[in-house]
Design a protein around this nucleic acid. Structure first.
Lengths: 230, 230
DNA sequence: TCGGCACTGATAATCGATTATTTAGGGTTT
DNA sequence: AAACCCTAAATAATCGATTATCAGTGCCGA
């Protein structure tokens, strides 16, 4: 018999993407999720040894995953001092929010100018999904549900993706990720009326009213920022 | 004698930052420079083994450096297929240029609105340095000199850094890097009158004429894009 | 002859162990 | 008592070797 392994090529070809995924990719997404869920506090060290043994992989794999997280802004590294979860100051958070206002209002205008019917459909669809998704899994849950967070991202992304520029969209995703991290750490602030805010934003956008839509988006982001620094 | 090494703590404390730098950091900057110099063609594979032996380090170090490059957009990775230099299509390049026009014109307006005297000084200073730096080291050199490239980046960055938002500036740097890569691979196109373009840009900016400055910057970026896709 | 399957060599991914650095603590000197 | 050197433990960085995967090659049967 051959000493070469050719596992499950017959039985489960569709599982390929799951089962053949690199370990580092698995560790990466696990860690990413944990960090975004706030399972590590700000500035908390991410110790490779510890993570490696708890996840049953070797150091190299963990290190590789951590490097990827650094590239995405979800981890910091200090020479000879290891890795840690980044710590954002209030100032930093305000800067991220301002960067988003600057970038996203331009992108929204571009979308409104260029977006086709397919784009309109994506906006309506993603808004519907967001509208239908409860903010919290259980009413007494302290944290926002993953489903809502995902639908929220999808809606905002759909608003902007009519611009048709993947480079701008990648930039948007990067800033979004940073915002999500801050959001989890600062889940205090007043209860927002997200439903109304998002509905108005959808309306103005689909009515192709660029000034109103950009303005609503700006307010939306300002409110988010305010909730965090209060 | 102790088996613990406490090297050069007396003789050369200032060399610490250089001599103690992590190997991965050294390999990273070496590779980064080589890639930006076009020493590897588009899509050319970056083989860890080969790089490791040629640089006299182990695989882990090279892999770590490559991961960092991926985070910066200067390398691609294909699962089980290794690393490579990214290949940019003409379309991609146009998208990067558009993203820069979008982002940088907003940032320039913010700078003009907010910039203080220190900012004005940085603009003048960096323009002066750029003005005084020859485009090519030798007149018959095919490639633009590192000094000019560095001065060019510094000038454009100075124009924008009056906005005072480091998040936006990081975003600018990221897009700039991508542009530099494309620039090296497409050093054809007509000879530009960079000197005049930059001088006009400086003038309009320091005159606080936001519309004119944003317009000049937009043209500048459009010309750069055109030179690449022609 | 044309696929398809087993084999192989090259290279990627992962591991376990080694080397280097930082930090905290204990003892000694001024 | 404060400052200093030394030591050692923790952990980061690096290495060498092992295991897994891919792409090509040639054999075989329809």
């Amino acid at each position: 018999m051959s000493r070469y392994y050719r596992g499950m090529s017959r039985d489960a070809p569709e599982k390929r993407s799951t089962s053949k995924q690199m370990r580092s990719a698995t560790v990466y997404s696990t860690l990413r999720t944990q960090i975004l869920h706030g399972e590590f506090g700000p500035s908390e060290p991410l110790k490779p040894q510890q993570l490696a043994s708890s996840m049953g992989v070797s150091l190299s794999v963990v290190r590789e995953a951590l490097q990827q997280l650094i590239g995405e802004g979800l981890a910091d590294r200090h020479a000879n001092r290891g890795f840690s979860v980044p710590a954002f100051s209030d100032l930093r958070w305000q800067q991220i929010a301002e960067a988003r206002r600057t970038l996203e209002s331009s992108m929204l205008r571009m979308s409104i100018e260029r977006g086709d019917v397919e784009w309109e459909a994506r906006v309506r669809g993603s808004h519907h999904r967001l509208y239908r998704t409860p903010l919290r899994a259980a009413t007494d849950d302290p944290y926002i549900s993953d489903e809502w967070a995902s639908a929220h991202h999808a809606f905002h992304r759909a608003l902007l993706d009519g611009c048709g520029n993947p480079v701008l969209l990648e930039t948007f995703d990067r800033l979004w990720t940073a915002s999500e991290l801050a959001r989890r750490w600062a889940e205090r602030g007043p209860v927002r009326d997200y439903v109304t805010e998002h509905s108005r934003l959808e309306e103005a956008t689909l009515a192709r009213d660029a000034d109103a839509a950009a303005d609503l988006l700006g307010q939306h982001l300002t409110l988010t920022a305010a909730a965090l620094s209060s």
